[in-house]
Design a protein around this nucleic acid. Structure first.
Lengths: 372, 372
DNA sequence: TCCGGCTGTTAAACCGATTAAGCACGTGCT
DNA sequence: AGCACGTGCTTAATCGGTTTAACAGCCGGA
């Protein structure tokens, strides 16, 4: 029992106590306790013993490790094995879209389940920070990188030096060449609008977002919207495609524009770009004396709990598969799941329709009762 | 046990190219290029040269490093220096309270500004996972740990083996002994209620949350509420302290209970435990034919953007200093800021009042007009 | 008796940096 | 000439593990 000199200066009486606190027990100590060499300890504890080392010795080593509370220094191990069991997640931002956070959480959880730790870096979209982050993470010898976006988008100028295996999350690299997963916005829109068509609606407006340039999701959802109309033999009315700011006020304003149309052209249902716009649509409906879903059906997008579930009546909406995407990204990164080869490596994750109470059959009310 | 692909993989033709991609240039290569030993390279690049090494040599080394794109392997460096420049953040959950995410983001940003990377682990409140996380992070030799809660609470059973410097964020350890930062809920309530008193209100209700056990914040805000009333010489009316579920419906129901009181006891202002409850209070006010702020003033808590800013009229509320707390925690951890010694190491972070349009002078309307 | 092979274990190289200690050389002083 | 000292660098130990090659001892067969 002759301990190595303690590194700290603050002298306690009992060296024993001090050591417990400051110095972790290493493989050497275990080897000494078990009366073997460090090589043997390493072999045993890593199950590389392969019959070469008798059970008795293995038992001795394991007991020594357990009793001394040995935990290997992963730094040292990683230096030799060249695997750190860490991954880096770079995201443009995490706080803005509340439920996109689920992506990060899912990524972290998946990493953990596979024995990895996750470095989180959010760059606020700053190119320079992003570049620094890539470098810092590679310096740390991460086993892989996830490049996450908080909105479905096409990433045009990638940082330099992204390692080949990097996985894109909720975005895809302009040039391709990396595995990527994004929500199936077109498919989600199809589900939403089909739901309205199935309920009997023929005049369905798309209350789009008004942003320049329009986000990926905007165009894709429009495609889905048009696709369903066409399949249903409904002539799309350009007047029913309106745009508004992405908040309740903007949504109310845009929704009002279609609700103000003459009775024979006025929509009986609204497909809103997102839940905030749908929230505004509720307000507009109220101002037009329309009751949801009796007089007007509304479908949103995003399934933001704070809005969709709290509105009265509950908003039928389409959920973004944040959790599934976060998990997918890490699984692909860690080789637990096949890398996609089709479609330039881009995988579309389905967006499930969440049915609440904001959709019903079209109203048959007297047009004169339209305003209050 | 599928082997992760790590950074290497898909073979390229030219070894040269391959090397560029797979093998990072090490200190040895730089030494060779500059015609010196690795020791010299290390000395120069770490500015430990201290006049011992002439400028000409330094120049040569630096150029070699730059030209070869040398970046030190932080694993190796850390093994030797015993500092990894990484910190671990353990949080019970990150997705639930949307804006608590700011805490994590602030922590990450602060870590980055001080040259550190942040490991994120969210445990879902699972004790066992929490324990594993502590162990895994310590194995990785993190320089420190932040233990974050997503609601202000007292942490009763801490995981084993938390290193002494661990900082608590939005929570404090039951036994003390660790630095901790929590929002000043009492102070925030004081600001909110004082604001109402200053506007002339005398009958102010506290629409509390109905949870067992009541969260820390509930009691503290109640204290602040009572404190202001007492200072203002207002007799607190127990009937004006009601509780409801923490959502819009619960808030509406609880608010209705006080709005149903006879005119001479009915409050002219509501202080709500949070913004979701305040959202319900808006609905209740509407149903009672009361206009905000003309007939009823409302103050919330949390400043949830999706609610507070979107409501009409905008909700005056109290913001939780998530950003400031996240930053504080990391600064204390990294020794950039003095550890608190007062109050068992617990620091109260001020909660600023956010003034919007939901507060006005008390109504002088005819009580008979109360219902519509 | 000698040799090959098997068993159980270990010495030592290695990962890529940092850093204490020391060496070689020139210079100035006595 | 001899010596101390400063300058400019290098050697080698070290961090805490993993991994390869080899060694000691024993056994059985030729």
């Amino acid at each position: 029992m002759c301990p190595p000199p303690a590194l700290t200066g603050h002298g306690l009486d009992t060296l024993d106590e001090e050591e417990r606190v400051t110095t972790r027990v290493g493989i050497k100590e275990v080897a000494r306790l078990a009366g073997v060499s460090t090589a043997t300890v390493s072999l045993v504890l890593n199950d590389r013993a392969a019959e070469r080392i008798p059970a008795s010795t293995q038992e001795r080593v394991r007991r020594a490790a357990l009793e001394s509370g040995y935990a290997p220094n992963r730094l040292a191990r990683s230096l030799r094995t060249r695997r750190t069991h860490t991954i880096g997640l770079i995201s443009d931002r995490i706080a803005t879209t509340p439920y996109a956070v689920r992506m990060v959480e899912a990524a972290q959880e998946t990493a953990r389940r596979h024995g990895h730790l996750l470095f989180l870096v959010s760059t606020g979209g700053d190119r320079e920070l992003e570049q620094e982050a890539v470098a810092a993470l590679l310096d740390q010898q991460v086993d892989g990188l996830v490049y996450a976006c908080m909105w479905h988008r096409v990433v045009t100028d990638l940082p330099q030096g992204l390692p080949p295996g990097t996985v894109f999350l909720d975005g895809r690299p302009a040039g391709g060449g990396f595995p990527a997963v994004v929500p199936d916005d077109r498919g989600g829109a199809v589900a939403a609008v089909q739901h309205l068509v199935d309920a009997g609606h023929r005049r369905i407006a798309y209350v789009d977002i008004d942003e320049e340039p329009p986000p990926e999701a905007s165009g894709l959802r429009h495609q889905g919207y048009l696709e369903v109309l066409e399949r249903a033999g409904i002539q799309a009315d350009p007047a029913l495609h309106v745009r508004g700011r992405s908040d309740a006020a903007g949504g109310a304003e845009a929704a009002s524009r279609v609700l103000d149309l003459p009775a024979d052209r006025r929509p009986t249902a609204l497909f809103c770009f997102n839940d905030r716009i749908a929230m505004g649509a509720y307000a507009a409906a109220r101002r037009h004396g329309l009751e949801i879903p009796r007089d007007l059906s509304v479908v949103g997008y995003d399934d933001q709990q704070l809005i969709a579930a709290e509105l009265d009546p509950g908003l039928t909406t389409v959920a973004l598969p944040h959790h599934a995407m976060g998990r997918w990204a890490v699984e692909v990164l860690l080789g637990e799941r096949e890398r996609p080869t089709q479609d330039d490596g881009v995988v579309l994750m389905p967006c499930p329709l969440i049915r609440r109470e904001s959709v019903g059959p079209p109203s048959v009310r007297d047009p004169d009762r339209r305003r209050v």
